[in-house]
Design a protein around this nucleic acid. Sequence first.
DNA 1: CGCGTTTGACCCGCGC
DNA 2: GCGCGGGTCAAACGCG
Length: 179
Amino acid sequence: MDDMHSMLYLGSSARERSSTIPSSQGSPSNNFFINSSYGVSEGEMFHGSASTEIRENGGGINFMGTVNRNDDEVNVDAKQKNKNTKQKYAFQTRSQVDILDDGYRWRKYGQKTVKNNSYPRNYYKCTHQGCNVKKQVQRLEKDETIVVTTYEGMHTHSIEKPSDNFQHILSEMKIFPPC
DNA sequence: CGCGTTTGACCCGCGC
DNA sequence: GCGCGGGTCAAACGCG
């Protein structure tokens, strides 16, 4: 639990409040499971083609690939000036906790219950000044042990808190952008 | 006392 | 045009 504590400085309240995750105290290590799939669509974002399986700390992360906002965003010539292609990185993590420490500080700014799906979706922003990176965290309904995390944007600063092998995973993912 | 979470309201895009 | 669903805001609250 001690290592969990160090890894989850962000999810302090989530740890205590969300009693829906009772096993958060006894789990020795997060299970991370990586596999990559592209073409994330609304309804079914999980065609888990397990090809890139990176085993770091006894688990895996499910990297879903980047999602450009659909071409409607690109076609809109009106408002999009700075970045017409918003980069989204979605991946699944198998973990008992909603928030996995990626070395950044996140401030929760919203929570929404998604209609068709599952558990409430949480919205986070990076608290670093000038860095407006957002991420969404949503737990699967079918398998509540899987958490879908969607990053949007790129950080304009370095990681504040180095997270051992998680940083390694993130750096691996940043190479991927196929947009 | 400062910072992060909570939570309902508000906004906006889209489909009917 | 309207309703719905998803995303964000912001005031209040809680906790360290």
